[in-house]
């Protein structure tokens, strides 16, 4: 190979090559380890950055319900929460499919801050594509402790 037709900044300065090698190593470590977060089970509720394209685990059908507990005439009253009337369609899809549990948690915290709301509860029963029933997802949030608490049967 003729030398005069090869050019690069990396060739020009040896320090640049070391810097590039460090950058490559860090980048590769992140790319290899980030998806493992999901596959190792450390972050099952968050499938982002896992390259889980068209896999079986992504294929689940969920039936999600939400309930709100409000204070009315000095009494506590529990009633179903009509998700459709609260959020736009784009968020509803995420809430109803339970693919992103962090979205559900944030939603509960957000909704709990509305006037008159004492507590909000979310329940979702999911079935995998092969018919396997997953444990019920149950999350709740109340005004005093707006961070959602996870139910005992959380997967």
């Amino acid at each position: 190979m003729p030398v005069d037709n090869v050019s690069s900044a990396v060739n020009a300065r040896p320090g640049t090559r070391i810097l590039a090698s460090v950058l490559i190593a860090i980048y590769l470590a992140v790319q290899l380890l980030l998806p493992l977060r999901y596959y190792s089970g450390a972050s099952q509720a968050d499938p982002r950055f896992s390259w889980r394209m068209f896999s079986s685990t992504g294929q689940k059908h969920c039936l999600a319900k939400a309930y709100e507990i409000i204070r009315q005439d000095g009494k506590l009253l529990e009633r179903p929460l009509q998700l459709d009337s609260v959020l736009p369609r784009s968020w509803l899809h995420i809430l109803k499919t339970s693919h992103q549990q962090n979205v559900v948690e944030e939603f509960l915290s957000w909704y709990c801050q509305r006037p008159g709301i004492v507590q909000v509860r979310y329940e979702s029963d999911c079935t995998l594509a092969d018919g396997t029933q997953l444990p019920r997802i149950r999350l709740e949030s109340d005004r005093k402790a707006p961070l959602p608490r996870k139910g005992e049967s959380l997967p």
């Binding site: 998806p35 596959y39 896992s50 390259w51 889980r52 394209m53 068209f54 896999s55 079986s56 685990t57 092969d130």
Partner: peptide
């Protein structure tokens, strides 16, 4: 990873 994610029954 896309291949690994598919390894199930």
């Amino acid at each position: 990873y896309a291949a690994i994610a598919k390894i199930d029954a």
